[in-house]
Design a binder for these strands. Structure first.
Length: 579
DNA sequence: GCCGTTTTCGGCCCGACTGTTTTCAGTCG
């Protein structure tokens, strides 16, 4: 499946066209086509072979030809030509806030600037102010931009910034009494990583006060920009946070607008136009009279556009607008639906806490049951357990079950070894997660061969953290053919894990979406190694929501009796295999 | 470059800010 490569090619073309100063409509045509193919579940090669590329929305004759050429020759002559025409260094200059395609190209050709260091030097020497339509202020703006660029932490995993942002919101609410304060942007959509964070405040009279509080708080390492309605700061970890003050009667429109995504917003505005309306961040207006018909809440905006409110996690232009218009939005799983946690470790292997501590925490969280899955042998460093130790753990769990009054199932997290062997599994065990913990950098063929052998052995019930990735640039995902993996899981009736450990989130939203659409059942596992980590369930729930998962798709919503029934079936299935 | 149940041409999502300008292009979100 070469969808990803094609998407990258189209995006690259769009980037080069931007620098070339091509019509923005032509550029967005490439971006739109890329977006459509990105969300395609079918291999693009199949469509091409059938000559059906132009049936995709946003793909016409010209783009179809370029895709066809790429699929048959492995490259695009159009892109190659663009690359010859425009130097790669220009992209680096565009990384500086305030420098767009036009200026970057001019700096490259008129001053011969090849890097951000050279740009800084030129600005300091006063060479930039000598260019046409540039002045001293523009030069200083560039120097400021370079400073911001160097401070920028880039996209960071959501969990690294979420606690601080929530603290900001509650602090500002407490100090001002304003109710309508909320994060927006990709943060509110629960994207796994975020760039800048936007916080919105609705107030007609206290804007100055809020901005003062925000700018002078402890979390502010530096104020980048401060005005009447906007203030940008950088946190000690280098994340930019923008506070925006909006009029009270525009709260809903502003929240909708700044939550995005951009593609989702464009979709909504197209619908507004088709109804003779106009949507912007201040409200929804009649095109003819200019009369405002909605804006106070997000709900009334969506309603006026003829659809129910769409949860932020879905706003990625993955078909949610059409689903909403047809009344077919999924009824997304919520935290309240969660009745148990699967995948957790105790001090039997590498966890910090006892079975009892974990059980008590589960009870505090309002759960009916938990599935403990300590590491099995075959995992050197963490001291996995063998069958006899597992048996002991099982006995202890039965004791704790009575003491604490919560159903405790005891499974195992079995290693899928480099040769695909499963270490270890038994029909006695309540739930067997198969996970890869070693040889993560193997080739796609090797990884898939391991998965295949493990899945078809009949010894495992699920796949744990299927790609093995760690967010924040710590570890890339294994080279997994996710479609093939899901097909095998579907074939053998395995469950797929949504690992809720906040730097895993694995499966991620898009892959949950794929699994759900294939009819595969999933579960959320916190992979907790201490009681506190059981609170990470929230990350798993929102990852599931980003994949359109409903209550019925997720095992954690089963009652303890239903879970027990399922587990008996799984044990019987494993027993039948091992005889 | 794509698209069409008023259209095969002329539209295409919207608005703010900035700096260098006599009317707007470039950048950003």
């Amino acid at each position: 499946m070469k969808n990803k490569e094609v998407v990258e090619m189209l995006r690259e073309i769009a980037e080069y066209l931007t620098i070339k100063g091509e019509s923005r409509f032509k550029i967005s045509a490439y971006e739109k086509a890329a977006h459509v193919i990105e969300n395609l579940t079918q291999p693009i090669e199949e469509l091409d072979a059938l000559g059906k590329l132009t049936q995709l929305p946003g793909v016409g004759k010209s783009i179809a030809e370029k895709i066809h050429e790429y699929l048959t020759t492995g490259k695009s002559s159009y892109l190659e030509e663009l690359k010859r025409e425009i130097p790669r260094e220009v992209f680096e200059l565009m990384e500086v806030p305030g420098i767009g395609p036009k200026l970057a190209m001019r700096l490259y050709t008129e001053l011969g600037i090849r890097s951000i260091d050279e740009l800084e030097e030129a600005a300091k020497q006063g060479r930039i102010r000598k260019m046409k339509r540039m002045g001293v202020k523009a030069e200083q703006k560039i120097l400021k931009g370079i400073q911001i660029y160097r401070m920028d932490a880039g996209r960071v995993p959501l969990f690294t910034i979420r606690p601080l942002v929530m603290e900001m919101v509650s602090y500002l609410k407490d100090k001002t009494g304003i109710e309508r304060i909320s994060p927006a942007g990709s943060f509110r959509r629960w994207r796994e990583d975020v760039g800048d964070v936007d916080i919105l405040v609705a107030t007609d009279s206290e804007g100055q006060k809020v901005i003062e509080l925000f700018a002078s708080a402890e979390w502010t390492k530096e104020v980048l920009w401060r005005g009447d309605t906007k203030c940008s700061i950088v946190t000690p970890t280098g994340v930019q946070v923008d506070l925006r003050v909006v009029p009270e009667d525009s709260w809903g429109a502003a929240l909708q607008y700044f939550t995005g995504s951009k593609a989702h917003n464009i979709r909504l505005r197209e619908i507004a136009i088709s109804k003779g309306l106009k949507l912007n961040e201040y409200g929804l207006y009649r095109e003819d009279t200019g009369q405002k018909i909605a804006g106070l809440t997000e709900e009334e905006i969506y309603e006026a556009l003829g659809m129910p409110w769409i949860p932020p996690e879905l706003r990625e232009d993955m078909g949610e607008v059409q689903a909403a218009l047809q009344g077919k939005l999924p009824n997304l799983i919520t935290e309240d639906d969660i009745r148990g946690d699967i995948h957790m470790h105790t001090n039997y292997s590498d966890g910090a806490d006892s079975i009892k501590a974990m059980a008590l925490k589960a009870k505090e969280l309002g759960y009916e049951w938990i599935v403990i899955t300590d590491h099995a042998i075959g995992l050197g460093v963490v001291g996995g357990i063998d069958y006899d130790t597992w048996k002991k753990e099982y006995e202890e769990a039965k004791q704790v079950e009575k003491e604490v009054g919560i159903r405790i199932f005891v499974g195992i997290e079995a290693n899928i070894m480099v040769d695909g062997e499963v270490m270890i599994s038994s029909p006695d065990m309540d739930f067997v997660i198969g996970s890869i913990h070693s040889g993560l950098d193997g080739s796609r063929e090797k990884i898939m061969a391991r998965y295949k052998k493990a899945i078809y052995s009949g010894l495992i019930d699920s796949i744990g953290h299927p790609t093995g990735r760690l967010l924040g640039g710590i570890r890339p995902p294994m080279d997994v053919d996710i479609d093939q993996l899901l097909s095998m899981a579907k074939d053998k009736g395995l469950f797929m894990e949504i690992n809720a450990y906040p730097n895993r989130l694995d499966l991620n939203g898009p892959n949950v979406f794929k699994a759900k659409n294939m009819g595969i059942k999933l579960y959320i596992g916190t992979d907790s190694h201490a009681t506190m980590q059981m609170e990470n369930m929230i990350y798993g729930v929102h990852t599931a929501r980003r994949g359109w998962a409903e209550k019925k798709d997720i095992l954690n919503t089963l009652s303890s009796d239903e879970m027990e029934e399922l587990i008996e079936k799984l044990k019987a299935r494993r027993k039948a295999i091992s005889v």
